[in-house]
Simulated assay, not measured.
Amino acid sequence: MLAAYFDQFNVVNLITIWTATFSGGYLTFSFTNSALMMVFIVLLFWGGLKVNYVIPNRWQSILELINTIIQSMIKENLGAQGKHYFSFVFCLFIFIGLLNILGLFPYVFTPTTHIIITFGLSFSIVLGVTILGILRFKIDFMSMFMPGGVLLMLAPFLVIIETISYVTRAISLGLRLAANISAGHLLFAIFSGFVFDMLTNGLIILSLFPVLVMIFITILEMAVAVIQAYVFCLLTTIYLGDTVALH
């Protein structure tokens, strides 16, 4: 029964693109349900950006609201110099937010529940920040790993600690998103299974309370889907601050 709750996280091979056989096994490149969802989100977002009504419809009003929120986030954390990061952070928020929200619908796969997807995003962001920081500040970028005003004998230990702290940004950023979304999906699956068992056993009245709990969890998960996308983008914006000014 417990294994059934994890079936929603299974990556399903839809189309096999290419397979290579090796002495120890084989390597397969496939188009999966995870890839399908991400391609769908990109196409949906791309089509939505082409909408430009004089009197905004609901979708355009949401995009304009998100636009305002992201601009405010970037201005507060990066200042005027960070405006060229707006498009990246805006698209990142829409991409993660839509994946999280659409994943709440039945039979829809949620790629953000997989650490390989979220870690891929977070690792790419931290790597990009590092490259941009080195290109802008050159060797001075390494001063981030050595706080000023400390004893020389403590320098090696502080450099190691700061380096580990910097590298774990990628792990914590991706893990936080995957863990929160996965926990919500598991909680909802467990409660829905509990309600289904009560209904099939004729306990209709007693099942009313679990149904109310499921409604509350659904509303909560919708909020978590948006909040986690916002937190991911907020932390990304903070990390991008290292390419604007050294701390």
Rank of each mutant, 00 (worst) to 15 (best):
F191T: 12
S165E: 02
F141Y: 15
G148V: 07
F86W: 13
I219S: 08
N67V: 01
F216W: 13
E162A: 14
F40Q: 08
Q71K: 14
K83I: 14
A3L: 10
W59Y: 14
S122C: 07
F157D: 05
L65K: 09
M222K: 08
V195N: 13
F123W: 07
M142A: 06
M214A: 08
G97Q: 14
I238F: 02
G79V: 03
T243I: 05
I164K: 08
L27M: 10
V224S: 06
E221Y: 14
I101M: 12
P111N: 03
K50V: 04
L220F: 14
T243S: 11
A80E: 15
Q71N: 12
A35R: 07
G97P: 06
G241W: 01
V108S: 06
V150A: 07
G202M: 03
D242N: 10
T118R: 07
A179Q: 11
T112M: 04
K50L: 11
T112Y: 01
L78T: 03
V167G: 00
I238T: 05
L44C: 04
F191S: 08
F145H: 05
V11W: 14
L14S: 02
L220K: 13
R136S: 02
I205D: 07
L175D: 01
M198G: 00
L154A: 02
T110D: 14
I190Q: 13
P56D: 09
F45N: 10
Y5I: 04
V12E: 03
I164G: 00
G184A: 12
F109T: 02
T237L: 02
I171K: 09
P210M: 03
A20Y: 15
E76V: 10
A189I: 10
A229H: 15
F88S: 06
I55F: 09
F209C: 04
L186V: 08
V51P: 00
V150T: 12
A20D: 14
D7Q: 11
F22Q: 06
F90V: 06
I96A: 15
V11N: 14
L203P: 00
I115A: 05
A189R: 14
G120R: 11
V108C: 09
A183G: 06
S172C: 04
P56F: 09
I181A: 00
K50W: 09
I160N: 08
D197F: 11
H114W: 00
F95K: 14
A80L: 09
L43P: 02
L151Y: 05
N201A: 09
L206G: 12
F40T: 11
F109Q: 00
V89A: 06
W46S: 07
F9Y: 13
I161H: 13
A3H: 12
K75C: 01
L175N: 03
L135H: 08
F216G: 05
T243N: 01
C91V: 11
M198L: 13
V159P: 01
I15G: 02
L173A: 02
V167N: 00
L65W: 13
P147M: 05
V54P: 00
N57W: 15
F6Q: 06
F209L: 15
G128A: 07
I215Q: 13
S207Q: 06
H84D: 14
